[in-house]
């Protein structure tokens, strides 16, 4: 690559980074992306769920209760990814003071919180027929519960501080500090003796189930990520509208929609 080409790449990256700082720009370009991710999420989640529920074979030990995996694993994975994204947004907000980062930090909370609650609930419902208990206090389940409380904390902190800028920075600090919990969740089953089994998928090893079982799981995982993307864009646009409600462009938009 020539010097000038790499220079122009870095310049356009820089321009893009600066544009990201503009909520209006984001609002105007994100519509098609929201629709794309929404359609993908619908197709993937319906396919993966029907496949997992009706077509995947049952497990030789757990029978049909193992089908709960197809809702438990995607919600658990995405709840941690959402938190990592909020940690990154927190970093960007604290260092670069980017408005959009603060909006991500507030708009991602409801989805992440509901997914964490869902992962804990489906885990309990799966635990009863397989382990013989709804809930146990092992390192995995406890660190997941901590994640739920971190989400509660982020939500409550935002409500408790009236000044938007202060609330944003407080949430950014909590989001960043809380990311320490993510590796604990991931490695809890390897570091300590737990009732929860270790991961079925690793980056290096082959999956510990046949394709007829993991393909629908992969589809649902991809689907839930697309759903998060669509949902986050939708909530971001709403946050932008609310925070910029008195600007000319939002008022023009409102008049345009009502006309």
């Amino acid at each position: 690559m020539s010097m000038s080409a790499s220079l122009s790449v870095s310049q356009s990256l820089k321009a893009w980074w600066h544009k990201l700082g503009s909520p209006r720009w984001f609002y105007e370009i994100s519509g098609p992306w929201q629709r794309l991710f929404g359609v993908l999420a619908l197709v993937l989640l319906v396919t993966g769920t029907v496949w997992g529920l009706a077509f995947a074979p049952q497990d030789y030990q757990q029978g049909n209760s193992f089908r709960i995996m197809y809702v438990h694993v995607p919600t658990a994975i995405v709840s941690q990814s959402v938190y990592m994204l909020m940690g990154a947004a927190g970093l960007v907000l604290l260092v670069w003071r980017m408005k959009l980062a603060d909006m991500v930090l507030s708009a991602a909370v409801p989805f992440g919180m509901s997914m964490t609650a869902c992962a804990l609930f489906t885990g309990a419902v799966w635990g009863k027929p397989t382990w013989g208990a709804w809930w146990v206090w092992d390192a995995r389940t406890t660190s997941m519960l901590v994640l739920l409380f971190l989400y509660f904390g982020l939500y409550a902190l935002r409500q408790a501080i009236p000044r938007e800028e202060t609330a944003g920075r407080a949430c950014a600090v909590l989001a960043l500090v809380g990311t320490v919990n993510i590796p604990i969740i991931k490695y809890s089953v390897n570091w300590w003796l737990t009732l929860h089994q270790p991961a079925s998928f690793t980056l290096t090893g082959a999956p510990s189930m046949p394709p007829s079982m993991w393909v629908p799981l992969l589809i649902n995982v991809l689907g839930i990520y697309c759903l998060f993307a669509a949902n986050l864009i939708g909530r971001l646009k709403l946050t932008i509208l609310e925070r910029e409600r008195n600007t000319q462009w939002v008022r023009a938009l409102v008049r345009e929609v009502s006309a």
Partner: peptide, 21 residues
Amino acid sequence: GGHGLYVWLAYLTTITVVVGN
């Protein structure tokens, strides 16, 4: 196979949460 209550409870809850979002 006798696990219907658990499986359906988990799926219906998740679908409700997803649609709710």
